[in-house]
């Protein structure tokens, strides 16, 4: 009985810490890619590094030239996932509005439309642009509770090795909710 009590007392602070700071971090043993994830108000949010070589391969296979793929492949790209498991309603977000801070300053994300204009000007052909557009994390989306979700590419637009904080924000019937990831690192 005494042993159980001691164990419980030792466990309480760690459970408390988990509840206050639910951010988790893991590394893929095959690729070395890092994932940061958190869960807030019934919503899962995660970012997994996509390595520049993976992105070059993906887009060359979709019809880009290496030169056309390079600016995006080296722009600090993640596989982003948002999933509405059991939020208290339909969540709605605009991902380009998510605040990103680098060394205390705010950093603006280049919206998907901006990337499309840039790639179109670089001569990327139409079918490859269609693949690019739909491979991106949705710029705006709504998810109903019960497991609606997407995964897609999200470019942060920072040099390799940069560290940043990002806060995913969404609203439910006009009320704003947040899930933050801290000290996320760009691959490379």
């Amino acid at each position: 009985m005494k042993r159980v009590t001691v164990a419980t007392v030792l466990l309480l602070p760690s459970l408390s810490a988990l509840a206050e700071n639910p951010q988790a971090h893991r590394v893929d043993v095959v690729t070395g890619a890092k994932t940061w994830e958190t869960r807030s108000n019934g919503v899962h949010f995660s970012l997994t590094q996509l390595l520049p070589d993976q992105l070059r391969a993906f887009y060359v296979n979709r019809g880009f030239t290496l030169q056309q793929a390079e600016p995006y492949a080296t722009s600090c790209v993640y596989m982003a996932v948002i999933r509405n498991d059991d939020a208290p309603g339909v969540i709605h977000f605009v991902s380009s509005d998510w605040p990103v801070s680098v060394e205390g300053g705010l950093h603006a994300l280049l919206p998907v439309e901006g990337w499309l204009e840039r790639l179109s000007a670089a001569g990327v052909r139409k079918s490859a642009l269609v693949a690019f557009r739909w491979a991106q994390f949705p710029p705006e989306q709504s998810y109903r509770p019960g497991g609606d979700w997407n995964q897609g590419m999200l470019s942060i637009g920072l040099p390799a090795g940069s560290r940043f904080d990002i806060t995913a924000t969404w609203d439910i019937d006009g009320e704003t909710y947040r899930a933050g990831l801290k000290e996320v690192q760009c691959a490379g």
């Binding site: 893929d28 095959v30 890619a33 993976q54 391969a57 296979n61 590419m153």
Partner: peptide, 9 residues
């Protein structure tokens, strides 16, 4: 890699 770019986890 192109086929499995987002394959992990």
């Amino acid at each position: 890699f192109g086929a499995a770019v987002w394959g992990a986890e």
